[in-house]
């Protein structure tokens, strides 16, 4: 029976709950980093080995520079490196966001439309087999050296992981949950918001993360093909000038960029689906 004079649900107001969530997410990230000390030790050891092996065997600097050379020479060129990081970062992030903005609704449409499942889906699956990066020179030829062809190439390498995982995510609600929703008489829209969407998020994030890894790869290769700025451009010029030290500095900033992008997606996952098994703290 419904008791009308029962105390109201002690649900906390929304803002503090979200703030708490953010604090927990950041705290989780810090803990993850703190737990990484064996890896960090190995990491430092690896660079020490590199440094002293190069010196010990007398490897010339134009073949393989030492990490300390990379740091000092890279530091001397830091304004340009930062500039180019911003360029490549813009291409990657724009392309990534566009791929998610297009891939998610298309994946959703395919998951729910039997017609699209028979037409677009097999088309996408076969396109998935095509190395998208092979289109890069074509897009440069069609659209020139600017931002647009790079963004398009990033979209190309990010789109498929997003779309294919979304199709899988939205198409695989368990029989029990489907039946449960039907037995309540809920319409498709309410079922979507209350059950299908949250149930699909973990699998969607598999695609988002995979795409985040692809984004900087796409941007770099696009820059190799034809550009006058960006980290890919920087690395290819440095290599041509027999300056592997600067190439390594470029690679370092590319790595930072990729880590930052992946970190943002992981943090978003942590915030959006803290209940998911991959997100639980043990």
């Amino acid at each position: 029976m419904v008791s009308s004079n029962a105390p109201r649900d002690p649900a906390p107001a929304h803002a503090p709950a979200h703030a708490g969530r953010l604090i927990r997410a950041v705290e989780w990230l810090v803990l993850r980093i703190a737990a990484a000390w064996p890896f960090l030790t190995f990491f430092v050891g690896f660079f020490l080995f590199w440094e002293y092996a190069v010196i010990l065997f007398g490897v010339p600097g134009y073949i393989l520079p030492t990490p300390s050379e990379i740091v000092t020479r890279g530091w001397a060129d830091i304004p340009r490196l930062l500039d180019y990081t911003l360029v490549t970062g813009t291409e990657s992030v724009l392309g990534y966001l566009l791929a998610v903005a297009v891939g998610l609704p298309i994946g959703l449409a395919i998951a729910f439309s039997p017609m699209l499942r028979r037409t677009l889906y097999p088309f996408f699956v076969s396109l998935e087999m095509v190395p998208k990066i092979a289109f890069a020179p074509l897009f440069i030829a069609w659209l020139g050296f600017g931002l647009l062809p790079k963004v398009i190439i990033v979209v190309l390498v990010c789109f498929f992981p997003v779309a294919l995982n979304a199709i899988h995510a939205f198409g695989s609600l368990s029989d029990e949950l489907t039946r449960f929703c039907r037995s309540t008489g809920a319409g498709p829209l309410r079922t979507f918001w209350k059950v299908r969407l949250p149930a699909a998020l973990p699998q969607c994030f598999v695609g988002f993360k995979y795409a985040a890894l692809n984004a900087t790869v796409g941007a770099t290769i696009a820059e190799f093909m034809g550009s006058d700025q960006g980290l890919g451009f920087y690395i290819s010029i440095a290599t041509g000038n027999m300056r592997p030290d600067l190439a390594f500095a470029g690679i370092f900033f590319l790595t930072l960029l990729g880590l930052a992008l992946f970190g943002c997606v992981t943090l978003a996952e942590r915030l959006l689906i803290p209940w998911h098994i991959s997100q639980r703290r043990h």
Partner: peptide, 13 residues
């Protein structure tokens, strides 16, 4: 909620 009902009055139940 799937039935379009407000769960608040059901807290006691």
């Amino acid at each position: 909620e799937l039935r379009g009902l407000d769960p608040k009055p059901y807290a006691g139940r």
